[in-house]
Design a protein around this nucleic acid. Structure first.
Length: 309
DNA sequence: AAGAGGCCCAACCGCATGCTG
DNA sequence: CCAGCATGCGGTTGGGCCTCT
């Protein structure tokens, strides 16, 4: 026996909603609510529409506080981060973005964000060029050099923000702070300055200092750790750039005329320079890297994982 | 100016899940 | 426990709009 149709297909209107239909639906729901029964609603509201269609129209377009238009960087970051962790669970993702619908996010992902990410991946040679085993990347500067990087950071792809403060005062914290291997190279210090063996990430974080700066004028190669560091802002402002100092020494990552936006750095554990050509590979990459998100998201993801299990 | 192709997004479809009797 | 039904969800589609040639 087949499934009973949810409505009389021959008698319902399909396609785009007219302003009159919108008004009818809106007025009805505002007056009487949905009554917990979408199937019966169109008839009561005087609409020749399927109940499912009404529900969709209300949820995706008519209900109050729906946000339309451009997604913010923060929203991008949340979507990427959640997608990396839970996949295409659009309704869960939408629940974390007030005013956004699952349909909106799905469309946004499929039409723009995915391409943005793929675009980054195809241009990620910029990172691959920096193919040390372990690197500290510091931020600052501006968003001109490689704008995709901020998206990358937002999604925790490749870059694992494996360290920050080891206490709870920072919006983003980790209890297991890795020790930076002695073979690490600090990009912000210019020519291959090496890490002092045994220095831990927390040391960097807590002492306004990242890496052994060797720049002759002293203005480059040192990153301050801003007080009350907001790792998320830092991530957004963070840019991998290249510039020269007065002595024409090249610095792959720098502070841009001494104008440090926030501070600290990313600990990047880069395994091999690979070509990532498909989404599956991106996801695989995400899953094999340490993904760390700021506290709110961490809690959220814990909850989601609990629910899933 | 106009046609082709691509992009975007609202809406549809069908399956999964949850609820109820 | 089961069947029937409503709802929720994610994948897909189609048409309007935009851009390019």
């Amino acid at each position: 026996m087949g499934r009973a149709p949810c409505c009389d297909k021959a008698n319902v209107k399909k396609g785009p909603w007219s302003p009159e239909e919108d008004a009818k639906l809106k007025e009805y729901i505002e007056k009487f609510g949905t009554g917990g029964n979408w199937i019966a609603l169109p008839q009561k509201a005087g609409l020749r529409r399927c109940g499912k269609s009404c529900r969709l129209r209300w949820l995706n377009y008519l209900r109050p506080n729906i946000k339309h238009g451009e997604f913010s960087d923060e929203e991008d970051r949340v979507i990427c981060s959640l997608y990396a962790n839970i996949g295409s669970r659009w309704s869960i993702i939408a629940a974390q973005l007030p005013g956004r619908t699952d349909n909106d996010i799905k469309n946004y992902w499929n039409t723009k964000l995915k391409k943005k990410l793929m675009g980054f991946v195809s241009s990620s040679h910029k990172i691959r060029l920096l193919n040390h085993q372990h690197q500290i990347i510091t931020n600052g500067y501006n968003n001109n050099y490689c704008p995709q990087i901020s998206l990358l950071q937002a999604s925790s792809l490749l870059i694992s923000s494996n360290y920050s403060n080891n206490n709870n005062t920072s919006p983003c914290y980790e209890t297991n702070i890795p020790t930076i291997p002695s073979s690490s190279t600090f990009l912000n210090t210019g020519a291959s300055a090496s890490c002092t063996s045994g220095i831990t990430a927390s040391t960097f974080q807590e002492s306004n200092f990242v890496g052994p700066a060797t720049s002759s004028d002293g203005s480059y190669g040192v990153s301050n750790c801003g007080e009350n560091l907001d790792f998320r802002n830092y991530m957004y402002n963070g840019v991998i750039g290249e510039e020269e100092d007065q002595n024409n020494s090249k610095f792959l990552i720098n502070e841009g005329g001494g104008k440090l936006i926030s501070g600290s750095g990313f600990y990047v554990e880069q395994q091999n320079a690979l070509d990532y050509s498909s989404l599956e590979e991106i996801k695989e990459l995400i899953s094999t890297n340490h993904i760390t998100t700021c506290n709110n998201n961490s809690l959220l993801l814990d909850e989601i994982k609990k629910k899933k299990s």
